[in-house]
């Protein structure tokens, strides 16, 4: 892959995303208040208990806060941009660019994600910190590992969303499919409720899917709930899921582009 081109697209995506300032602020406000509502529910869940399944109240609140801050970085509600280009035909120009579709969108997505993280995520955590105690990773190494895990989480999320969007090559109803698919990622990634609070049987089902690798893993690393060998294993699982989903994307893309070309769009 041509890295210079990649960074060029990335830079454009960053600039593009910073122009949506009103939307960024509006999203920040909404995510923040929903964070407060959810924190109240979590607090009520804990009432007298100090911890549930190894997760303290403070940890769970932090989990919720970071979840709200990551909505726009990990696009936890899904994204529909690629299928839009299929439906409005502008994908044709993307297909003739000297850059694979996958890396093109990877760069675009990362640019937008970075801006969202810095302008929405960080600000949200700051404001949230005024209302609730948000735990921070104790050591510098934890920060690094968290960053690495969240980055892997973003990659998994990207590949998943890309895969879902590719269905638009076959059906005019990709939006509906997407809506359905992104429900699973929300529920099973631990975004709605930390996976540790679910009954064990359900948490085990979640861990059979790629979705915890999007969000729950990063949070466990952040909170120091996984350590040592288990931590490396978690990061490894994230990487494996990304590789698997990316592989599926490439296979599907090859078939899809062939179909698109044959049908003439």
């Amino acid at each position: 892959m041509n890295m210079r081109l990649f960074f060029h697209v990335l830079k454009l995506a960053v600039l593009q995303q910073t122009t949506y300032r009103t939307a960024l602020i509006a999203g920040l406000v909404t995510n923040f208040f929903f964070g407060l509502f959810r924190a109240a529910v979590i607090t009520a869940l804990y009432h007298q208990q100090g911890q549930i399944n190894g997760l303290t109240l403070e940890g769970a609140i932090t989990y919720v806060a970071i979840g709200q801050a990551m909505i726009s970085f990990l696009f936890l509600f899904g994204s529909y941009d690629l299928m839009m280009t299929v439906y409005n035909g502008s994908i044709a120009t993307d297909l003739i660019r000297p850059m694979p579709l996958f890396s093109l969108w990877l760069a675009k997505d990362f640019g937008a994600a970075l801006v969202n993280l810095l302008m929405r995520g960080v600000l949200l955590l700051f404001f949230f910190g005024l209302f609730y105690k948000v735990a921070l990773p104790p050591r510098a190494a934890d920060w690094l590992l968290t960053a690495l895990s969240l980055l892997l989480g973003w990659l998994v999320s990207f590949a998943w969303r890309f895969l879902v969007n590719l269905t638009s090559f076959w059906t005019p109803d990709a939006r509906g499919i997407g809506r359905g698919a992104f429900i699973f990622s929300q529920l099973l990634s631990g975004f709605l409720i930390p996976l540790r609070l679910y009954p064990d049987w359900f948490a085990r089902i979640c861990h059979l899917t790629p979705f915890p690798a999007m969000f729950n893993t990063g949070m466990e690393v952040y909170l120091g709930a996984v350590r040592g060998a288990e931590l490396w294993r978690s990061l490894g699982i994230q990487a494996v899921w990304f590789a698997a989903l990316a592989g599926a994307c490439f296979a599907m893309m090859r078939a899809g582009v062939r179909r698109l070309v044959i049908q003439g769009g």
Partner: peptide
């Protein structure tokens, strides 16, 4: 799914 997630937590 929002209700289901609450339901599951309450199981614990």
């Amino acid at each position: 799914s929002y209700f289901v997630s609450t339901y599951l937590v309450l199981e614990r």
